[in-house]
Amino acid sequence: MDFDVITLTDVSRHFGRRRALGRVSLTARSGDIVGLLGPNGAGKSTLIGVLATLVAPTSGDVRYGSQTSRQAPPALRGRIGLLAHDLHLYPELSARQNLAFFAQLYGIDGREIVDAALASAGLADRGDDAVSGFSRGMRQRLALERALLHRPRLVLLDEPFTGLDDHAVDLVAGRLRRLAAEGAIVLLATHDLDLADGLVTRVMLMREGRIIADEAAAPGLRARYRAMIGAA
């Protein structure tokens, strides 16, 4: 089941008395690379959790094409790829074992796919090493490949550039552009405005659980971010 658009309508999420999201509405379409920007505690990770079907909204409606998130059938979850701040990797297992496990979990079989993912992560020669021995950057690259293993339609990335060197950042940015060009919807939450500038096609600025700006990306993101956060 594929979809070309995701739509959130008045989505709120409360944790006890704390409001993490307040009546958030957004639409993202196939080919978009949406940058979710905002200070710590703005609600970016909660919004990603809601979109990943892992956090149930307190109220509001989340739609993936014509399908609602409340049903969250396995087939829908299989079209979502998530790279969270925690990397969803087993440190005791090797890079290859991690990828093979998640590939099988997604119903993908074949050593070639795992080998290709290892090569794409730049870990072809470290595939049989335990992840616990990897640097943060190596884990980050591996986690990205794990999240993209099943060629998801909706790609959700929480701080995808953490721990990456310049070369790896270029590779990941190129990878995200290709995914969007192939029809994926990419949402990335980041604090790194310099990296987001030039990569994202749309910018959503969040503060205190609300989207305070939603606009097409344009050069000079840092200056506009400061102006908007200051004005909010």
């Binding site: 892992l54 396995p74 299989g78 998530l82 969803h88 990797l89 119903g107």
Partner: peptide
């Protein structure tokens, strides 16, 4: 505790499996 480290339980729950 193993599933908590790295939040792998969330990755399991996100998989298209029952």
């Amino acid at each position: 505790e193993r599933e908590r480290y790295g939040e792998t339980l969330r990755a399991l729950l996100l998989a298209p499996a029952p």
